[in-house]
């Protein structure tokens, strides 16, 4: 974030409040949806989708990721790849394993 002029920074601050309202709204939505009788798959999908949007807003705006430097992106890309491997590797390890079907 390299907003220099006072006006730019003030505009930036207004953006933060908009994001705050969006985050609150999304939280209400995700709680509301949990009271609907969705199938397990659908419920997981919606909850994760909303969480990802919220996470994206926090990372993108509050943490200034939208306008961040290349080095940071490279590091985060690497991390995300390994995060995905870590998330799915152990669970996939069970496919066709002995003792389960």
């Amino acid at each position: 974030m390299t907003g220099h002029s006072v006006e730019e920074i003030k505009q930036e601050a207004r953006k933060y409040w908009v994001v705050f309202v969006a985050l609150v709204a999304l939280t209400v939505i995700t709680v509301g949806v949990s009271y609907l009788d969705l199938s397990t798959g659908m419920a997981v999908f919606v909850a994760l989708l909303v969480a990802c949007v919220k996470g994206g807003l926090v990372a993108g705006v509050f943490m200034h990721l939208i306008s961040e430097r290349q080095a940071i992106f490279a590091i985060l890309l690497l991390t995300v790849i390994f995060f995905v491997v870590l998330m799915f590797g152990p669970t996939f390890g069970r496919i066709g394993s002995v003792g389960t079907s």
Binding site: T27, T30, S34, A43, A47, L48, A51, K54, G55
Partner: peptide, 9 residues
């Protein structure tokens, strides 16, 4: 933000 739905909801 991720903990809340995955544990509570």
């Amino acid at each position: 933000i991720f903990l809340f739905p995955s544990l509570y909801l």
